[in-house]
Simulated scan of single mutants.
Amino acid sequence: RVARPGPGRPRTRPDRVVADKGYSARKIRAYLRRRGIAATIPERIDQINGRIRRGKARCRLDRTAYRRRNVVERCFSRLKQNRALATRYDKRAVHYQAMVTLACLRLWLP
Rank of each mutant, 00 (worst) to 15 (best):
L61H: 06
P42I: 04
P7R: 15
K21S: 15
G50I: 00
G36C: 09
R35S: 04
A25K: 01
D46R: 14
R16V: 14
V94D: 08
A84N: 01
Y31M: 06
V94N: 05
A25C: 09
I28G: 01
A98E: 11
V17Y: 09
K56A: 06
L105A: 15
K56P: 00
A30Y: 10
F76Y: 15
I52W: 11
L105P: 06
R29Q: 04
A30I: 00
W108I: 14
P14A: 09
G55V: 04
A19R: 03
V100N: 01
L79Y: 00
R35I: 01
A103K: 02
A84H: 09
R16W: 11
A25I: 00
L102Y: 05
N49V: 02
T87L: 13
Y23Q: 06
R11N: 11
R35A: 09
R51Y: 03
A98D: 08
D62Q: 12
V71L: 12
R88N: 09
R1W: 05
V72H: 03
T64D: 02
W108L: 13
Q81A: 15
R54E: 05
A3V: 13
L85A: 02
E73N: 09
L61M: 03
D20P: 05
L61E: 13
R68W: 12
R9E: 10
V94A: 06
P7S: 12
R83W: 04
S24A: 12
Q97E: 11
R11G: 13
A3Q: 14
R11V: 06
V71H: 11
G55D: 01
R58K: 05
A25Q: 08
R58W: 05
I45E: 13
R34G: 08
R58D: 14
R35P: 05
T64R: 15
R34I: 03
A65I: 07
R54L: 02
P14G: 10
R29N: 00
R35H: 12
R78V: 11
V2G: 00
D20W: 05
T40S: 13
R88L: 02
N82R: 11
R34V: 05
C104Q: 04
I45T: 11
R34E: 15
R106S: 02
Y96P: 04
R78N: 04
